[in-house]
Protein backbone atom coordinates (compact mmCIF):
# COMPACT_ATOMS: atom_id res chain seq x y z
CA UNK A 1 0.00 0.00 0.00
CA UNK A 2 1.31 3.46 -0.78
CA UNK A 3 1.69 5.79 2.13
CA UNK A 4 -1.24 8.04 2.91
CA UNK A 5 0.55 11.21 1.94
CA UNK A 6 -2.24 12.84 0.04
CA UNK A 7 -5.67 12.24 1.53
CA UNK A 8 -7.44 13.46 -1.56
CA UNK A 9 -6.02 10.89 -4.00
CA UNK A 10 -5.88 7.70 -1.94
CA UNK A 11 -8.34 5.49 -0.14
CA UNK A 12 -12.12 5.78 0.11
CA UNK A 13 -12.11 9.49 0.97
CA UNK A 14 -10.85 10.39 -2.49
CA UNK A 15 -14.03 9.04 -4.01
CA UNK A 16 -16.14 11.91 -2.69
CA UNK A 17 -17.21 14.33 -5.38
CA UNK A 18 -16.32 12.14 -8.34
CA UNK A 19 -18.62 12.24 -11.35
CA UNK A 20 -21.22 9.47 -11.43
CA UNK A 21 -20.66 8.59 -15.08
CA UNK A 22 -19.97 4.92 -15.96
CA UNK A 23 -16.25 4.22 -16.04
CA UNK A 24 -15.28 7.44 -14.28
CA UNK A 25 -11.49 7.61 -13.65
CA UNK A 26 -10.45 7.10 -10.02
CA UNK A 27 -7.62 9.05 -8.39
CA UNK A 28 -5.67 5.93 -7.40
CA UNK A 29 -6.93 2.87 -9.29
CA UNK A 30 -5.62 -0.62 -8.43
CA UNK A 31 -7.56 -2.30 -11.23
CA UNK A 32 -8.24 -0.76 -14.65
CA UNK A 33 -10.17 -2.46 -17.45
CA UNK A 34 -10.86 -1.39 -21.04
CA UNK A 35 -13.36 -2.62 -23.63
CA UNK A 36 -13.87 -5.99 -21.98
CA UNK A 37 -16.26 -8.04 -24.02
CA UNK A 38 -17.50 -11.59 -23.60
CA UNK A 39 -20.37 -13.25 -25.42
CA UNK A 40 -21.87 -16.69 -25.16
CA UNK A 41 -23.17 -17.51 -28.62
CA UNK A 42 -25.33 -14.56 -29.65
CA UNK A 43 -25.68 -13.21 -26.16
CA UNK A 44 -23.34 -10.49 -24.97
CA UNK A 45 -22.83 -11.20 -21.29
CA UNK A 46 -20.24 -8.51 -20.62
CA UNK A 47 -19.48 -5.37 -22.60
CA UNK A 48 -17.64 -3.02 -20.30
CA UNK A 49 -16.15 0.08 -21.95
CA UNK A 50 -14.06 1.18 -18.98
CA UNK A 51 -13.83 0.24 -15.32
CA UNK A 52 -11.58 1.46 -12.51
CA UNK A 53 -11.44 0.27 -8.93
CA UNK A 54 -10.09 2.59 -6.27
CA UNK A 55 -7.26 1.29 -4.10
CA UNK A 56 -8.01 0.87 -0.40
CA UNK A 57 -11.76 1.24 -0.81
CA UNK A 58 -14.71 -1.14 -0.73
CA UNK A 59 -16.38 -1.16 -4.12
CA UNK A 60 -19.69 -2.90 -4.68
CA UNK A 61 -20.73 -4.34 -8.03
CA UNK A 62 -24.50 -4.52 -8.23
CA UNK A 63 -27.09 -5.14 -10.89
CA UNK A 64 -30.12 -7.23 -11.65
CA UNK A 65 -29.84 -10.96 -12.28
CA UNK A 66 -27.97 -11.69 -15.48
CA UNK A 67 -26.28 -8.31 -15.60
CA UNK A 68 -22.92 -10.04 -16.11
CA UNK A 69 -21.39 -9.37 -12.71
CA UNK A 70 -20.10 -12.88 -12.10
CA UNK A 71 -18.93 -13.17 -15.69
CA UNK A 72 -16.94 -9.96 -15.27
CA UNK A 73 -15.46 -11.43 -12.08
CA UNK A 74 -14.46 -14.58 -13.92
CA UNK A 75 -12.85 -12.54 -16.70
CA UNK A 76 -10.90 -10.26 -14.39
CA UNK A 77 -9.52 -13.17 -12.37
CA UNK A 78 -8.57 -15.30 -15.37
CA UNK A 79 -11.23 -17.97 -14.84
CA UNK A 80 -12.75 -17.10 -18.20
CA UNK A 81 -11.29 -15.64 -21.40
CA UNK A 82 -12.82 -12.52 -22.96
CA UNK A 83 -13.47 -12.10 -26.69
CA UNK A 84 -11.59 -8.84 -26.50
CA UNK A 85 -10.39 -6.31 -23.96
CA UNK A 86 -7.47 -5.37 -21.75
CA UNK A 87 -7.15 -4.96 -18.05
CA UNK A 88 -4.33 -4.39 -15.64
CA UNK A 89 -3.70 -4.82 -11.94
CA UNK A 90 -1.23 -2.48 -10.25
CA UNK A 91 -0.38 -1.15 -13.73
CA UNK A 92 0.66 -4.62 -14.91
CA UNK A 93 -1.32 -6.14 -17.72
CA UNK A 94 -3.32 -9.28 -16.95
CA UNK A 95 -3.86 -10.20 -20.63
CA UNK A 96 -3.98 -13.96 -20.94
CA UNK A 97 -2.57 -14.44 -17.45
CA UNK A 98 -3.89 -17.76 -16.04
CA UNK A 99 -6.03 -17.70 -12.90
CA UNK A 100 -3.36 -19.04 -10.57
CA UNK A 101 -0.91 -16.32 -11.58
CA UNK A 102 -3.54 -13.65 -11.10
CA UNK A 103 -3.95 -14.91 -7.54
CA UNK A 104 -0.20 -14.87 -6.96
CA UNK A 105 -0.06 -11.24 -8.04
CA UNK A 106 -2.35 -10.38 -5.18
CA UNK A 107 -5.85 -10.52 -6.61
CA UNK A 108 -7.78 -13.31 -4.94
CA UNK A 109 -11.43 -14.17 -5.40
CA UNK A 110 -14.09 -16.18 -3.65
CA UNK A 111 -17.02 -17.93 -5.29
CA UNK A 112 -20.76 -17.41 -5.40
CA UNK A 113 -21.24 -21.08 -4.55
CA UNK A 114 -18.63 -21.54 -1.85
CA UNK A 115 -15.78 -23.82 -2.76
CA UNK A 116 -14.52 -25.22 0.50
CA UNK A 117 -12.52 -28.42 0.21
CA UNK A 118 -15.06 -30.66 1.92
CA UNK A 119 -12.83 -33.61 2.76
CA UNK A 120 -10.03 -31.54 4.20
CA UNK A 121 -10.14 -30.17 7.71
CA UNK A 122 -10.66 -26.46 8.30
CA UNK A 123 -7.02 -25.92 9.25
CA UNK A 124 -5.82 -27.81 6.15
CA UNK A 125 -8.07 -25.60 4.02
CA UNK A 126 -6.34 -22.61 5.57
CA UNK A 127 -2.81 -23.97 5.16
CA UNK A 128 -3.45 -24.56 1.47
CA UNK A 129 -3.94 -20.83 0.99
CA UNK A 130 -0.36 -19.89 1.89
CA UNK A 131 1.84 -19.13 -1.12
CA UNK A 132 5.48 -19.97 -1.79
CA UNK A 133 5.43 -23.17 0.25
CA UNK A 134 8.65 -25.18 -0.02
CA UNK A 135 6.74 -28.37 0.82
CA UNK A 136 4.60 -27.96 -2.28
CA UNK A 137 7.52 -28.94 -4.50
CA UNK A 138 7.59 -32.70 -4.93
CA UNK A 139 11.23 -33.39 -4.12
CA UNK A 140 11.38 -31.28 -1.00
CA UNK A 141 7.94 -32.56 0.04
CA UNK A 142 9.49 -35.97 0.69
CA UNK A 143 11.79 -34.56 3.37
CA UNK A 144 9.85 -33.11 6.25
CA UNK A 145 12.70 -31.11 7.85
CA UNK A 146 12.92 -29.01 4.68
CA UNK A 147 9.44 -27.55 5.14
CA UNK A 148 8.55 -28.16 8.78
CA UNK A 149 9.49 -24.71 10.07
CA UNK A 150 7.63 -22.95 7.27
CA UNK A 151 4.61 -25.15 7.90
CA UNK A 152 4.63 -24.18 11.57
CA UNK A 153 4.70 -20.52 10.67
CA UNK A 154 1.84 -21.00 8.19
CA UNK A 155 -0.15 -22.83 10.86
CA UNK A 156 0.37 -19.95 13.29
CA UNK A 157 -0.88 -17.47 10.72
CA UNK A 158 -3.84 -19.73 9.91
CA UNK A 159 -4.75 -20.05 13.59
CA UNK A 160 -4.70 -16.27 13.98
CA UNK A 161 -7.05 -15.87 11.06
CA UNK A 162 -9.33 -18.65 12.29
CA UNK A 163 -9.59 -16.92 15.64
CA UNK A 164 -10.38 -13.63 13.95
CA UNK A 165 -13.11 -15.27 11.87
CA UNK A 166 -14.40 -17.19 14.93
CA UNK A 167 -13.72 -20.52 13.31
CA UNK A 168 -11.08 -21.68 15.81
CA UNK A 169 -13.55 -24.09 17.46
CA UNK A 170 -13.98 -25.83 14.10
CA UNK A 171 -10.24 -26.20 13.45
CA UNK A 172 -10.14 -29.98 13.18
CA UNK A 173 -13.60 -30.47 11.62
CA UNK A 174 -13.98 -31.44 7.99
CA UNK A 175 -14.87 -28.31 6.02
CA UNK A 176 -17.79 -30.23 4.52
CA UNK A 177 -19.50 -30.27 7.90
CA UNK A 178 -19.65 -26.46 8.19
CA UNK A 179 -22.84 -24.45 7.74
CA UNK A 180 -23.32 -22.19 4.72
CA UNK A 181 -22.30 -19.06 6.62
CA UNK A 182 -19.26 -20.72 8.16
CA UNK A 183 -18.19 -21.82 4.70
CA UNK A 184 -18.34 -18.20 3.54
CA UNK A 185 -16.19 -17.23 6.50
CA UNK A 186 -13.73 -20.02 5.82
CA UNK A 187 -13.45 -19.08 2.17
CA UNK A 188 -12.76 -15.47 3.07
CA UNK A 189 -10.20 -16.44 5.70
CA UNK A 190 -8.53 -18.84 3.29
CA UNK A 191 -8.31 -16.11 0.64
CA UNK A 192 -6.49 -13.96 3.21
CA UNK A 193 -3.85 -16.67 3.61
CA UNK A 194 -2.68 -15.67 0.12
CA UNK A 195 -2.19 -12.14 1.53
CA UNK A 196 -3.95 -10.42 -1.37
CA UNK A 197 -4.01 -6.71 -2.11
CA UNK A 198 -7.39 -6.97 -3.79
CA UNK A 199 -10.04 -9.31 -2.40
CA UNK A 200 -12.88 -10.10 -4.76
CA UNK A 201 -15.95 -11.50 -3.03
CA UNK A 202 -18.71 -13.02 -5.16
CA UNK A 203 -21.95 -12.65 -3.20
CA UNK A 204 -20.50 -13.00 0.28
CA UNK A 205 -23.94 -12.78 1.86
CA UNK A 206 -25.74 -15.38 -0.24
CA UNK A 207 -27.11 -18.13 1.98
CA UNK A 208 -25.85 -16.61 5.20
CA UNK A 209 -28.27 -16.48 8.10
CA UNK A 210 -29.08 -12.99 9.45
CA UNK A 211 -27.26 -13.59 12.73
CA UNK A 212 -24.00 -14.20 10.92
CA UNK A 213 -24.52 -11.35 8.47
CA UNK A 214 -23.49 -8.62 10.90
CA UNK A 215 -20.24 -10.33 11.79
CA UNK A 216 -19.54 -11.01 8.12
CA UNK A 217 -20.08 -7.30 7.39
CA UNK A 218 -17.60 -6.49 10.11
CA UNK A 219 -15.07 -8.85 8.57
CA UNK A 220 -15.39 -7.24 5.16
CA UNK A 221 -14.90 -3.79 6.71
CA UNK A 222 -11.86 -5.04 8.60
CA UNK A 223 -10.28 -6.00 5.26
CA UNK A 224 -10.29 -2.30 4.35
CA UNK A 225 -8.78 -1.46 7.71
CA UNK A 226 -5.98 -3.94 6.91
CA UNK A 227 -5.25 -1.75 3.90
CA UNK A 228 -6.72 -4.18 1.38
CA UNK A 229 -8.99 -3.28 -1.50
CA UNK A 230 -12.34 -5.04 -1.73
CA UNK A 231 -14.52 -5.53 -4.78
CA UNK A 232 -17.70 -7.49 -4.17
CA UNK A 233 -20.82 -8.59 -5.98
CA UNK A 234 -23.95 -8.39 -3.91
CA UNK A 235 -27.73 -8.44 -4.10
CA UNK A 236 -28.31 -7.47 -0.52
CA UNK A 237 -28.86 -3.69 -0.75
CA UNK A 238 -28.58 -3.23 3.02
CA UNK A 239 -25.08 -4.58 2.88
CA UNK A 240 -24.20 -2.43 -0.10
CA UNK A 241 -25.45 0.69 1.64
CA UNK A 242 -23.79 -0.22 4.90
CA UNK A 243 -20.23 -0.98 3.87
CA UNK A 244 -19.41 0.16 0.37
CA UNK A 245 -17.54 3.37 -0.42
CA UNK A 246 -18.37 3.19 -4.09
CA UNK A 247 -20.97 1.36 -6.13
CA UNK A 248 -20.74 0.25 -9.76
CA UNK A 249 -24.05 -0.69 -11.34
CA UNK A 250 -24.22 -3.15 -14.21
CA UNK A 251 -27.18 -3.98 -16.40
CA UNK A 252 -27.22 -6.22 -19.45
CA UNK A 253 -23.45 -6.52 -19.48
CA UNK A 254 -22.71 -2.81 -19.35
CA UNK A 255 -21.87 -0.43 -16.57
CA UNK A 256 -24.83 1.95 -16.39
CA UNK A 257 -23.96 4.08 -13.40
CA UNK A 258 -21.44 4.61 -10.62
CA UNK A 259 -21.39 6.60 -7.44
CA UNK A 260 -21.52 6.52 -3.68
CA UNK A 261 -24.30 4.31 -2.30
CA UNK A 262 -26.57 7.30 -1.71
CA UNK A 263 -25.98 8.72 -5.18
CA UNK A 264 -26.54 5.38 -6.86
CA UNK A 265 -29.76 4.66 -5.07
CA UNK A 266 -31.21 7.95 -6.19
CA UNK A 267 -29.94 7.54 -9.73
CA UNK A 268 -32.63 7.29 -12.39
CA UNK A 269 -30.53 4.91 -14.51
CA UNK A 270 -30.20 2.48 -11.60
CA UNK A 271 -33.91 2.48 -10.85
CA UNK A 272 -34.54 1.90 -14.53
CA UNK A 273 -32.10 -0.99 -14.58
CA UNK A 274 -33.81 -2.71 -11.67
CA UNK A 275 -37.45 -1.84 -12.24
CA UNK A 276 -37.64 -1.18 -15.98
CA UNK A 277 -37.68 2.22 -17.64
CA UNK A 278 -41.43 2.61 -17.45
CA UNK A 279 -42.11 1.46 -13.94
CA UNK A 280 -43.88 4.69 -13.02
CA UNK A 281 -45.57 5.41 -16.33
CA UNK A 282 -49.11 4.40 -17.13
CA UNK A 283 -48.74 1.71 -19.77
CA UNK A 284 -51.83 2.85 -21.70
CA UNK A 285 -49.99 6.04 -22.60
CA UNK A 286 -47.24 4.13 -24.40
CA UNK A 287 -47.53 3.21 -27.98
CA UNK A 288 -47.63 -0.46 -28.76
CA UNK A 289 -44.24 -0.52 -30.41
CA UNK A 290 -42.51 0.56 -27.23
CA UNK A 291 -44.34 -2.08 -25.22
CA UNK A 292 -43.28 -4.68 -27.74
CA UNK A 293 -39.63 -3.61 -27.52
CA UNK A 294 -39.83 -3.69 -23.74
CA UNK A 295 -41.16 -7.22 -23.75
CA UNK A 296 -38.41 -8.37 -26.07
CA UNK A 297 -35.74 -6.84 -23.91
CA UNK A 298 -37.23 -8.59 -20.93
CA UNK A 299 -37.17 -11.92 -22.74
CA UNK A 300 -33.52 -11.39 -23.58
CA UNK A 301 -32.79 -10.69 -20.01
CA UNK A 302 -34.50 -13.84 -18.87
CA UNK A 303 -32.42 -15.85 -21.30
CA UNK A 304 -29.37 -14.27 -19.86
CA UNK A 305 -30.45 -15.27 -16.39
CA UNK A 306 -30.72 -18.87 -17.48
CA UNK A 307 -27.26 -18.67 -18.97
CA UNK A 308 -25.90 -17.21 -15.78
CA UNK A 309 -27.44 -19.90 -13.64
Amino acid sequence: MPADTNATTTGPAALQGLATEPGVPKPDPILVGDKIKRSFGGLTAVDVAHIEVQRGAITALIGPNGAGKTTLFNLLTGFDKPDSGRWSFNDKSLDGVPAFKVARRGMVRTFQLTKVLAKLTVIENMRLGATGQRGEKFLSALFRPLWKSQEDEITRRADDLLARFTLDAKREDFAGSLSGGQRKLLEMARALMVDPELVMLDEPMAGVNPALKQSLLGHVKSLREDGRTVLFVEHDMDMVRDISDWVIVMAQGEIVAEGTPAQVMADERVIDAYLGAHHDTDLTELDEEAVQAEAEAELDQEEEVKKDD
Binding site: F79, F100, F111, L120, R134, G135, E136, F138, A141
Partner: peptide, 27 residues
Protein backbone atom coordinates in the same frame (compact mmCIF):
# COMPACT_ATOMS: atom_id res chain seq x y z
CA UNK B 1 5.88 -38.96 2.72
CA UNK B 2 4.48 -37.20 -0.33
CA UNK B 3 0.83 -37.28 0.66
CA UNK B 4 1.44 -36.14 4.22
CA UNK B 5 3.24 -33.07 2.89
CA UNK B 6 1.94 -29.75 1.55
CA UNK B 7 2.42 -31.27 -1.92
CA UNK B 8 -0.07 -34.00 -1.06
CA UNK B 9 -2.40 -31.39 0.38
CA UNK B 10 -2.51 -29.66 -2.99
CA UNK B 11 -3.30 -32.96 -4.72
CA UNK B 12 -6.15 -33.74 -2.31
CA UNK B 13 -7.48 -30.22 -2.75
CA UNK B 14 -7.46 -30.62 -6.53
CA UNK B 15 -9.49 -33.81 -6.04
CA UNK B 16 -12.05 -31.78 -4.09
CA UNK B 17 -12.28 -28.64 -6.21
CA UNK B 18 -9.84 -27.54 -8.90
CA UNK B 19 -11.11 -23.99 -9.17
CA UNK B 20 -10.71 -23.34 -5.47
CA UNK B 21 -7.07 -24.43 -5.70
CA UNK B 22 -6.54 -22.27 -8.77
CA UNK B 23 -8.02 -19.25 -6.99
CA UNK B 24 -5.37 -19.68 -4.29
CA UNK B 25 -2.51 -19.36 -6.74
CA UNK B 26 -1.57 -23.00 -7.39
CA UNK B 27 -0.71 -24.27 -10.85
Amino acid sequence: AATKSPWGRVLKSIREDEDAVRSLGKN
